[in-house]
């Protein structure tokens, strides 16, 4: 079981898909101006990544080589549709706000990336864990970005007012802010990674 723990840890930290591998940003940044939307989106991605990795690993031996990509896409789209139906049924207002971005989970590179790089070569259980924590790492980054943007842009967290008395920084709500915030996050984490590597080399 040690192995599963390692998979979990590296996926959230060292090999975090967004910050270290720069994958899967497409469908994500657009919803990071509100934390609630980021949370729902992140949970959706986690669900799809975990279960599609699991399914693909399960049937991997049976998939004919020439239609592998097609089957993978099919499986991913299947889970995305389930998420979409679920949101429409139980969280209709959030589903409306997320608009096309739920459907775009299909083209999120993380999911296909994990399917190809891990699920196709490993048994189902580790694949499930790998996909799940790749999604969790993704969720945490989305929450971090939206935390900064929602506080500065609206003065709220998850929609609850902080009681701050200031003029909201409109730019934070607008698209450019997402780029600035993620760029600073990447800067900080890569600087850490570089430092840790240097330390490791010296020791």
């Amino acid at each position: 079981m040690v192995e599963l723990k390692v998979i979990a840890k590296t996926n959230v930290t060292k090999e975090n898909q967004i910050l270290r591998q720069i994958l899967g940003i497409c469908s994500a940044l657009a919803v990071t101006n509100l934390m609630t939307n980021s949370l729902v989106m992140g949970v959706g991605v986690t669900f799809v990544t975990a279960l599609s990795s699991f399914t693909i690993s399960l049937i991997n031996q049976l998939i004919p080589q020439r239609i592998r990509m097609l089957i993978q896409t099919f499986v991913i789209a299947f889970y995305v549709i389930l998420v979409h139906l679920f949101l429409q049924t139980f969280l209709p207002s959030i589903s409306k706000q997320l608009g096309p971005y739920v459907g775009l989970i299909i083209t999120n590179c993380i999911i296909m990336g994990r399917a190809e790089a891990f699920a196709a070569k490993n048994p189902p259980l580790p694949a499930l864990v790998d996909g799940f924590f790749a999604g969790v790492g993704y969720l945490l980054v989305l929450l971090a970005i939206s935390f900064v943007r929602e506080i500065l842009g609206f003065g709220t967290i998850f929609g609850f007012s902080l009681g701050l008395n200031f003029t909201p920084w409109t730019l934070m709500v607008m698209p450019p802010a997402a780029f600035f915030v993620i760029s600073i996050l990447i800067w900080i984490t890569s600087a850490w990674a570089i430092k840790a590597e240097e330390k490791g080399r010296r020791a």
Partner: peptide, 20 residues
């Protein structure tokens, strides 16, 4: 293989859709 995968996945979706 393609046919089986399509039928199984689409059937599950059709049932979920009808339910929801």
């Amino acid at each position: 293989f393609m046919a089986i995968v399509s039928i199984v996945l689409t059937a599950i979706l059709a049932i979920s859709n009808a339910a929801m």
